[in-house]
Write a protein that binds this DNA or RNA. Structure first.
Length: 539
RNA sequence: GUGGGAGUAGCUCAGCUGGUAGAGCGUCGGACUGUGGCUCCGAAAGUCGCGGGUUCAAAUCCCGUCUCCCACCCCA
């Protein structure tokens, strides 16, 4: 292989992995603006920033988001956190062992010996708590011993009266052994966070935030991870900006204020054409949502044969999800289904009415959408979603809702909660599509210098200007003035500071306004003041 | 996981029914050794995503594969 070929192959090998991407200037300036605006707006509503770990125990997400959801069951990046490389290698070797011929007793007993050795090593580590001393691990160790006992028993019987039909049975035992080997955990099972609400609740509990004045208002921003197929506005590493209100009351005014804050933020950040959809999905009780779901399920069963396979499957897995099917052919059918609003209990009904009234008092425009259901298990009562133009089929920039039971579900005190998450990638996409993405990039001053003496002055000037907050480009090598001004132009500089022998000997510096071509000479101490005066508005 | 589209210079793309690689923009240098944007000249940069097949000959035709994009699923 030639050097060139090798190099090319390496270049191909090292690229951002699927669903992840680099954000580069000038785009990153827009990201900063979006995030800065969130800091500003959220803090005016009394929210404080919380910074959370990127990974947590898998169990936290399984419990909070719901073990049956796609997010948890197939989209999380999960790994075991341990340092036992050699144990893992032994396990891998045992697991790849091929199926035995049931008559080949000697190779089976060799395998058995190896496994039992391995199990006793694990047992030692387990007893000394080097590997997690969990009931699950204990069970796994016992079950392996148990399986071998039964296999030996089975084998003895087989050798007395051989029968081929029994070979399958033997294979099944073997599969069970391999499965058990795999189920033993050397370390904690962790996952990259697919969302942040669970972490916020965990932190609320862990830091006893119920002792703080209630409610506690927190916001966060950062990357989340889901292993989905990438498409427009959807990445495997994506960014969310979210906020949660925990504790205190569940007054409808709180729901309304969170939404008001959200709309204020979108307005400040320059998002146009955003539409707010709201709904109430009641609470998990027989006289409320559970009753509705049963009702819906029955209605769906009646029209089952008219639905697509996906929707048919959802009748059992998650009937509410049928409601947001996008299939054209299903729309007339869905229109005939019962509405949840007609099945809410009295409290949820008045709660929803009051949320709407509170929104109106705040001048927040909304559209009711009875088909709006949230994908995560923890939501109840108020749910909302905001869509924006320019996003393709993934047109939701924000989703949120109330989750009163969640903190308790995670082992904390009974606590009210409501929150939302903004898809930052999608927000940025929509801003870019609507042309609201202009962010100033150029330098303020480009220093065109020539000659040793001038260079000393140029360094001094650069230092002063930067201290004063101007963005300054100081070329490292001497250039002809023509070239320097060309560079200044390409970099989008507003001014060129021209420093050559003339300037040094006269002690007058030349400052040139590039847009107009005007230039004037100033004594060194007046330069800063000149630039400050020129600056249109320095917030 | 399932479908559809696309991969040619840093970017946007042309390259017809096979004949050995092009443009514009950008980058760098020069015309232009104290004044930018314009113009002109020049240069660097591609084994045409990768692998295989057909052929005297493949960017072009066939097969496979990878990646990206879009949609479904799911969700922010």
């Amino acid at each position: 292989m030639s050097d060139a070929t090798a190099k090319r192959e390496e270049r191909r090998k090292f690229q951002a992995i699927r669903g992840t991407r680099d954000l580069l200037p000038p785009e990153t300036a827009l990201w900063n603006r979006v995030e800065q605006t969130a800091h500003e707006v959220f803090s005016t509503f009394g929210f404080g920033e919380i910074r959370l770990p990127i990974f947590e125990p898998t169990e936290l997400f399984a419990r909070a988001v719901g073990g049956e959801t796609d997010i948890v069951s197939k989209e999380m990046y999960t790994f075991e956190d341990h340092g036992f490389v050699e144990l893992e290698q032994v396990r891998a070797a045992l697991i790849i062992t091929k199926t035995f011929d049931i008559k080949d007793v000697s190779s089976f007993s060799a395998f058995e010996r190896n496994v039992l050795n391995y199990v006793s090593t694990l047992r030692e580590r387990f007893n000394s708590a080097e590997v997690p001393k969990t009931p699950e691990n204990e069970r796994v160790l016992d079950s392996i011993l148990n399986l071998f006992e039964r296999m030996n028993h089975f084998l003895k019987k087989y050798l007395e009266t051989p029968a081929d039909s029994h070979a399958d049975m033997f294979d099944q035992y073997l599969l069970d052994v391999k499965h058990a080997l795999r189920s033993f955990h050397f370390g904690d099972v962790l996952s990259l966070r697919p969302e942040a609400t669970a972490s916020v609740c965990r932190a609320y509990i862990e830091h006893n935030m119920q002792q703080l004045p209630q409610p506690v208002k927190l916001y966060y921003m950062g990357p989340m991870f889901r292993r989905e197929r990438p498409q427009k506005g959807r990445y495997r590493q994506f960014y969310q900006i979210g906020a949660e209100i925990l504790g205190g009351s569940d007054a409808p005014a709180i729901d309304a204020e969170v939404i008001e804050m959200l709309m204020t933020y979108f307005d400040k950040v320059g998002l146009h054409g955003a539409t707010l959809y709201i709904n109430s999905i009641g609470h998990n009780a027989e006289n409320c949502r559970r009753g509705y779901v049963a009702n819906l399920k029955a209605a769906l069963e009646k029209v089952k044969d008219k639905l697509c396979p996906d929707s048919q499957r959802r009748i059992d897995t998650n009937p509410l999800r049928v409601l947001d099917s996008k299939l054209e052919s299903e729309q007339p059918i869905i229109a005939t289904l019962p509405h949840i609003a007609d099945h809410l209990c009295d409290e949820c009904k008045t709660n929803y009415a009051e949320v709407k009234r509170q929104l109106e008092v705040r001048g927040v425009l909304y559209q009711e959408n009875w088909r709006l259901v949230r994908g995560l298990d923890y939501y109840m009562r108020t749910t909302f979603e905001i869509t924006a133009p320019g996003l393709g089929s993934q047109n939701a920039v924000c989703g949120g809702g109330r989750y009163d039971g969640l903190v308790e579900l995670l082992g904390g005190p009974p606590t009210k909660g409501i929150g939302f998450a903004i898809g930052e990638d999608r927000l940025i996409l929509s801003l870019q599509e609507s042309g609201k993405a202009k962010v100033e990039q150029g330098r303020d001053v480009y220093i065109a210098w020539m000659g040793e003496h001038a260079y000393a002055a140029a360094i001094r000037a650069a230092k002063d200007l930067r201290n004063a907050g101007f963005s300054v480009e100081l070329p490292p090598l001497e250039q002809k003035f023509g070239k320097a001004l060309g560079q200044a132009d390409k970099l989008g500089a507003k001014y060129a500071l021209i420093l050559g022998d003339n300037e040094v000997s006269e002690a007058l510096w030349t400052i040139k306004t590039l847009s107009t071509g005007e230039q004037q000479k100033l004594p060194e101490p007046e330069l800063l003041q000149f630039l400050r005066d020129q600056k249109p508005e320095s917030q």
